[in-house]
């Protein structure tokens, strides 16, 4: 027991603290740097948003996504862990890239969910996905118009429309193998709420924490272990 305690403190010093430091600095830098193109527009063309328009636009967009700023990181946190959360939110595409890639790395290495090993392995999987994703968007930016001609329209349409649904289905299949008892609930909660047109942010919270709640009941009753 005492050995584990020392280990935890050691890990906090050598993992958690540097992870938080790197995360805070990079996230806040990204926040400031993302306004650079606007500074360029102002300096070279003298164009910048009027204060009243800027505030209106801010209000309008916050009305659409504002709840997601909190709901997404909170809902994904138990899966991604600390470093995984910083990277996934900075790099985006959480559901179609970061979560599947983190889960796949853990599956391949066969680590136990919820452990420190799983956290590091999942984080490594996310890093692999960020590099591949960065290559893809950089190719698109510089030679996208010429490369896109390599894809027949039918193939491009297939990728555009069906990669996300297919990968969502595949990951759901992968995790349903581990906890099959939870799968029907995880589908029933969002479908019922979607039919009643409940706001999306409520549906995400209800799906994640509802499923966790049901898992807790099953765990206490010994249905799953």
């Amino acid at each position: 027991m005492s050995e584990k305690k020392i280990d935890d403190a050691f890990l906090h010093e050598h993992w958690t603290r540097p992870v938080v430091r790197i995360g805070m600095i990079t996230m806040l830098s990204a926040c400031i740097l993302s306004f650079l193109p606007l500074v360029y527009l102002y300096i070279v063309y003298g164009v910048y948003p009027k204060l009243s328009t800027a505030i209106t636009a801010w209000g309008l967009i916050a009305a659409v996504f504002g709840a997601m700023y909190f709901v997404e990181p909170i809902s994904y946190y138990p899966i991604l862990g600390l470093a995984g959360t910083y990277m996934s939110i900075l790099s985006g595409n959480v559901s179609n890239l970061r979560l599947p890639c983190s889960a796949m790395a853990q599956e391949v290495l066969g680590v136990k969910e919820g452990t420190r090993q799983a956290e590091l392995i999942g984080t490594m999987g996310i890093i692999g996905s960020i590099i591949v994703n960065f290559v893809a968007v950089t190719l698109a930016a510089f030679v996208g118009y010429s490369l896109i001609k390599l894809f027949p329209p039918a193939v491009a349409d297939a990728f555009r429309s069906y990669t996300a649904p297919a990968i969502f289905g595949a990951v759901f299949g992968q995790f349903s193998l581990r906890q099959p008892e939870l799968a029907p609930f995880a589908l029933a909660i969002p479908i019922a709420l979607l039919i009643f047109k409940v706001p999306v942010w409520i549906i995400i919270l209800a799906s994640v924490f509802g499923t966790i709640g049901i898992a807790r009941i099953f765990y206490k009753k010994g249905v799953i272990k």
């Binding site: 136990k112 799968a183 909660i189 969002p190 994640v208 898992a215």
Partner: peptide, 23 residues
């Protein structure tokens, strides 16, 4: 630790239940 493992899986199934629900 046993519960934490289940919790992590449950969160994953919950997120992807929602994502599949839309489709």
């Amino acid at each position: 630790p046993a519960w934490l493992a289940i919790l992590t899986s449950a969160a994953m199934i919950g997120v992807f239940g929602y994502l599949n629900g839309r489709n």
